[in-house]
Amino acid sequence: MKIGERLLKHLNKKYGPSQMVAFTFGRYDVATKTDEEGNPVLLFIGKADDRGIIKGDQFTRRLLKDASGAVIKDHWDYKGKV
């Protein structure tokens, strides 16, 4: 599975620091974990069961910054099925 442009727009937003954010995107259920700055760094996308656990795909974000805080690299890696 590949992350599309429309979903990337949601993932480029800032959320609350160090929290789990859940939302629906089209026919998929999405859960993302944020870092200390509120950037999504862990993504689960698929179908949630009755307990809220998502069965689908997992992605992690590689976000590199220089000393001044400017983003050098921003890339999502596919980690497999969950």
Rank of each mutant, 00 (worst) to 15 (best):
R6V: 14
K13N: 13
M1W: 00
D29Q: 04
D29F: 02
K33C: 04
N12G: 13
I72M: 07
H10W: 11
F59I: 07
L11F: 07
V82G: 09
D35M: 06
K55T: 13
D29N: 12
M20G: 06
F23V: 03
K33H: 10
N12Q: 02
T24Y: 00
S18E: 06
G4L: 00
T60E: 14
F23H: 04
D29G: 05
K2G: 09
V21R: 03
G46I: 11
I54L: 03
T24V: 05
I54V: 04
G69S: 05
I72D: 00
M1A: 11
A22G: 03
G16I: 06
Y78R: 01
R61F: 10
I72H: 01
L42I: 12
K14P: 00
N39T: 12
R51T: 15
K14V: 05
Q58W: 06
N39R: 11
Q58L: 13
M1P: 08
G4K: 04
G46E: 07
K2V: 08
V41M: 13
A67D: 10
K33L: 10
K79C: 15
V30I: 15
Q19L: 11
L42K: 13
I72K: 04
D66T: 00
K65C: 03
G16C: 05
Q58S: 11
P40K: 01
T32L: 15
E36T: 10
A48P: 05
N12S: 13
L11I: 09
E5F: 13
G16D: 09
T32E: 01
F23T: 02
D29K: 01
V21L: 09
G46N: 11
R51N: 14
Y15A: 07
K65P: 01
D49S: 07
K33R: 07
I3D: 03
I3N: 01
R62M: 15
K47Y: 12
G80D: 06
A67W: 03
G46P: 13
L64N: 02
R51P: 02
V21S: 00
A22H: 06
